[in-house]
Design a protein around this nucleic acid. Structure first.
Lengths: 208, 208
DNA sequence: TGTCGAACTTGACCGCAGGTCCACTTTACC
DNA sequence: GGTAAAGTGGACCTGCGGTCAAGTTCGACA
């Protein structure tokens, strides 16, 4: 693919300003309570600019999430074990879940917002803005998380429905009560229970 | 408590009409995509009536959910095993999860709407309309589900964090991908995987 | 059966947030 | 410097959740 036109300097500056402002707001409020006008004001740009760059409310959240998730993605693909390749699936899964709890914990409900992508009835056609939702309605970040999780499950227990189990595991991070927990700073507690679920699952009796 | 004034006949008729209309709409659309005006129109009443009866969008969903959940609540409290009392916790848990999947499966995303109760910033004071959200922000229906689930877990594995594990188990039913599965009619598959999770959890190695 | 107050109904109306639009400004390449 | 493409801003549109005050219906009781 031929080199795409580079992003203009001012545009890049604003993009970062918006992202940063959103981050700030996100540290204090749930994603659903943050209005785009607020974001624009906080970033010191016009509302139109925000929409121009990110297409929609969801687009913004998604972009932020992507940024956050990037490091993790790297670590998984080529970092040191147990997160990276090399360790046994069981340990990798646990490490991965811990890492995700960490990311989610730092971004109150961002995942939830992500999950609710389907909520906003998407306009018929999508601008060329960055990411689209693929035919399954999932976003690349979730895609990756889910893919990795289910692969690890399958590696250890090919007899189980790894796909679904991964959805269940990850999905639990979107629920209100769990989010509330995270807000209270009990990430460790969450991670511990997820570990129980994961290892229990991997050692579960064969299908009944 | 002294006998409350009986509901007027026309009011009762309208209440049922609204509930029924909502049910219909819910069979075809996600709760977030249904507007109150739509409901009102479908029920053949004014928008004001809907709000008068149910207080808010959430109130409506909640009322519907409650209706659906009632039978289950009965069955658990005093029905025959394995759902009702008598069977060992493990079996009761599995039976309960199956039942919940069934209820949720029949009401696309109602649970999700419930979970997102916190979304709509509640008005300072609540009218006397039916249910309020208690200080924890959870609704009675979820309360019951969670209470029962965590009690069953604790009965078998007092060493685990039953409270949280119950949230995780139930929370997974709110996630988009899982909901999508349900919409495709794969309730059985979901139930099977939940069973794996539950029994795996109950037989998981002691805390590390 | 007639009367009367409470319960109920209604739809116009409010405020707000997401998203669109387009006239205007800035950038970067020549 | 000139110029076309990229970027910007904010007025504006739309549709939604929720309110309200004026009008209507019910049903208890005489």
């Amino acid at each position: 693919m031929i080199e795409e036109r580079r992003e203009r300097a001012d545009a890049a500056r604003n993009r970062r300003a918006i992202l940063r402002a959103t981050e700030d707001l996100l540290a204090r409020h749930r994603p659903e309570q943050i209005s785009m006008e607020q974001v624009a004001a906080a970033a010191g740009v016009g509302k139109g600019t925000v929409f121009h760059r990110f297409g929609s409310r969801m687009g913004l959240m998604v972009a932020l999430m992507q940024e956050r998730a990037y490091a993790l993605e790297e670590a998984v693909a080529s970092g040191p074990p147990p997160l990276g390749p090399g360790a046994p699936p069981e340990e990798r899964l646990i490490a991965f879940l811990d890492a995700i709890v960490d990311v989610v914990g730092r971004n109150k409900g961002l995942l939830a917002a992500l999950g609710h992508a389907a909520t906003a009835a998407p306009r018929p056609e999508w601008k060329e803005h960055g990411e689209h939702r693929d035919e399954d309605g999932d976003h690349p970040v979730y895609r990756f998380w889910h893919g990795h999780t289910s692969a690890l499950i399958a590696a250890r227990r090919p007899d189980l429905d790894g796909e679904l189990l991964a959805h269940i595991l990850l999905g639990s991070l979107q629920s209100e009560p769990v989010l509330r927990l995270l807000e209270r700073g009990e990430a460790k507690r969450l991670a511990a229970s997820l570990r129980v679920m994961a290892s229990g699952m991997l050692t579960a009796p064969a299908l009944a």
